[in-house]
């Protein structure tokens, strides 16, 4: 194709693009062109819903320059046409799409997905545990929040359903969740995943290694439970036991290590510093007083993890 032919082909394409852009612009703004379809325009909404409009005006959704509600009729882009609502004198949910519990969660989410579906983060929204358990977008996101603040207030918003995690995250031994250094979404994909507990990894083990790279090994001597699942010994959000352990040391270790000599020895209330038979297998850090390489040992000829 020579240059002239290319340009001649380009011209009708440009004409087509121009026409489609103009027509798209008209269709995308029901506030201007859609009165006959029941659209009344944001100014009318504002007359009664002054507070809501004021908050909307501060949101990212109100920005004219992006492909969002402002370019598609403002309030009615999400709430639907308001003419009948006005005609009937208004009222909560009267002939208007409201984001409240009277409307099915999936329908509320569907409104948001009209624009946000193509976000690759939302790839598995339909199949994720939140959608399947009737958690909708507005359950976590404040749609009228000030620009930049639409992200859910983690972890509080998560705690409102996951009560056990709230309690765990405040315990004496914990990850830095309540300090806002690790957010729930640092580890979990709230918008849907097929991974166990919707974690952002192939499995929980790989997730832990993303921050604790020193535990990846590979070690000369492996500790099999460590290599299979961190959660055999640790709990992820918080624990009353040190190091987020599911039980105290030495009890946790002795549940598996019943061998000759000290692993099978009963350490009782006399084994502490001030007891009748103090033992360094019990007091202070118990087994870890000697067996420090518990996640894997890298010295030769030492399968007991003491070096």
């Amino acid at each position: 194709m020579n240059r002239k032919n290319f340009i001649l082909c380009l011209l009708p394409l440009c004409l087509l693009l121009f026409a489609s852009t103009v027509s798209l612009g008209a269709a995308a703004n029901p506030g201007e062109g859609g009165l006959e379809n029941g659209f009344i325009g944001a100014e009318t909404c504002q007359e009664c819903h002054e507070e809501q409009y004021a908050s909307y005006a501060k949101t990212i959704h109100s920005r004219q320059a992006i492909k969002g509600p402002a370019a598609q009729g403002a309030c009615e882009a999400c709430h639907g046409p308001g003419a009948m609502h006005v005609e009937k004198g208004g009222g909560r949910g009267v002939d208007i799409f409201a984001f409240n519990d009277d409307v099915k969660a999936s329908d509320r989410s569907a409104r948001c997905l009209q624009c946000h579906q193509t976000n690759h983060d939302m790839d598995l929204w339909e199949v994720g545990a939140h959608n399947r358990n009737e958690v909708s977008c507005d359950s976590c996101h404040d749609l009228h929040a000030y620009s930049g603040e639409q992200r859910p207030n983690e972890p509080e918003i998560c705690f409102s359903c996951h009560r056990d995690v709230r309690v765990d995250a405040n315990k004496r031994s914990r990850h830095a969740i309540i300090e806002d250094k690790i957010s729930c979404s640092s580890c979990h994909q709230p918008h849907g995943s097929i991974s166990e507990h919707m974690v952002k990894a192939d499995d929980p083990q790989q997730l832990c290694y993303s921050c604790h790279a020193e535990k990846r090994g590979p070690f000369v001597y492996e500790h099999p439970p460590v290599e299979e699942n961190c959660r055999y010994c640790h709990t992820p959000h918080g624990s009353t036991n040190a190091k987020l352990l599911t039980e105290k040391v030495p009890n946790l270790c002795q549940d598996c290590h019943t061998w000759q000599r000290h692993p099978g020895t009963p350490y009782d209330g006399e084994s502490g510093f001030s007891g009748r038979s103090p033992s360094n297998r019990f007091f202070a850090r118990g087994c870890l007083n000697c067996h420090s390489a518990i996640h894997g040992g890298n010295t030769i000829e030492n399968h007991a993890f003491t070096r």
């Binding site: 084994s271 360094n280 202070a284």
Partner: peptide, 26 residues
């Protein structure tokens, strides 16, 4: 305010028999 009581740390010593500790978590 935090108070912690556990037999493994009550009466903490740096040099109990056969052991030299550093005070970790005491």
């Amino acid at each position: 305010k935090s108070t912690y009581k556990d037999l493994q740390y009550i009466g903490y010593e740096y040099t109990p028999p056969g052991t030299l500790l550093s005070g970790a978590y005491s």
